[in-house]
């Protein structure tokens, strides 16, 4: 923990989907975490573990068959209790800046980057009058290192990296205290991934913003994150410092360790088995059927203690022995 006051506090956030036939899918269950100013929290987990649903819940973009519970505070505002009007006028863009997956698809194809930026500036800031809006849009582009010579281009004329910068520029316009990046590096080349996360890091290092980055790319997370939250089957199973997570001592939850060991520059060995269905979770620890450390104790749900929800976490001594 950085000891600074958190910008985003999530307490007991759960999301479930009601499916036809009365089935319930527990997409997110009882999530707790914080994100402070100047800090990057990486939320990692495999596809379908519920991390994108968590992002949608924070932005109030859940589909009609979803139900949410718990609290997610930015300042005094509970995002989950806010009505659509508040979310549209005060939250999206102003409190949370979204950096989307595949930014080129996120931009309107028939309008230039400049017109996107000017529209956002008019909507989110006090700038009025053509000249003021124009210069504010140019300043916003410059903040995200988007070259002013490319401002009059259309989205399809931009390279992947440029589109990413355009999307970042848009997310920064409202000067939101929380940046939410949803799989910002999927499908990008390694060089571009590193470049993108370095740029995101730069915006966090101003010390005024928190960044919540949702990703399945562990290498990207290692490069950018101060803290790491690992999600498995809808639950946050481990929240820890990035340094110890990726460093010598390694993560403590058996799932996190397995995920890390699957990287090609580590053991390159998969975790045996497949994740459980979110509509049919086992009683107790959801990871137990795939876990080599599982015992009878694991039929009871492990309470999160010290950032870890596991009955048999690895302790640093394990490694020295």
């Amino acid at each position: 923990m950085t000891g600074r006051t958190p910008i985003l506090t999530v307490r007991g956030l759960s999301v479930r989907f009601l499916m036809p036939g009365g089935r319930r899918i527990a997409a997110v269950t009882d999530a707790h975490f914080d994100a402070a100013a100047g800090e990057c929290l990486a939320l990692i987990g495999e596809s379908g573990c519920g991390k994108s649903v968590l992002a949608s819940a924070l932005l109030g973009l859940l589909p009609a068959n979803a139900q949410a519970a718990g609290e997610a505070h930015i300042g005094d505002l509970d995002l989950l209790a806010a009505d659509e009007r508040t979310l549209a006028r005060a939250v999206r863009g102003r409190l949370i800046g979204l950096i989307p997956q595949s930014p080129a698809a996120h931009l309107t194809p028939v309008r230039t980057v400049r017109s996107h930026l000017e529209e956002t500036v008019t909507a989110l800031t006090g700038a009025r009058g053509r000249a003021a809006v124009r210069s504010a849009a140019e300043a916003a582009a410059e903040r995200a290192a988007f070259p002013s010579g490319h401002l009059d281009r259309f989205p399809h004329e931009l390279s992947g990296g440029m589109a990413q910068r355009a999307a970042t520029a848009l997310a920064l316009v409202g000067d939101a205290p929380l940046l939410l990046a949803d799989e910002p590096t999927t499908g990008l080349d390694r060089d571009l991934v590193e470049h993108t996360v370095d740029e995101l890091r730069r915006h966090v290092d101003t010390g005024r913003r928190a960044l919540l980055m949702i990703t399945h790319d562990l290498a990207a997370a290692e490069r950018i994150a101060d803290r790491v939250a690992v999600m498995y089957a809808g639950r946050v199973v481990e929240v820890t410092d990035a340094e110890s997570f990726f460093g010598a001592s390694g993560p403590r939850h058996p799932y996190s360790r397995g995920l890390l060991q699957a990287l090609p520059d580590r053991a390159f060995s998969p975790i045996p088995g497949t994740p459980p269905e979110l509509g049919d979770l086992p009683a107790g620890c959801a990871f137990a059927p795939r876990c080599e450390r599982a015992t009878d104790a694991c039929t009871v749900l492990p309470p999160p203690t010290d950032g870890i929800a596991c009955h048999h976490p690895h302790v640093p001594e394990d490694l020295r022995a």
Partner: peptide, 16 residues
């Protein structure tokens, strides 16, 4: 189901 959210959870619906 034991893996459901804790007892007494208040669920909110969206967009009905």
């Amino acid at each position: 189901m034991t893996c459901e959210a804790p007892q007494g959870t208040v669920w909110r619906s969206y967009g009905t």
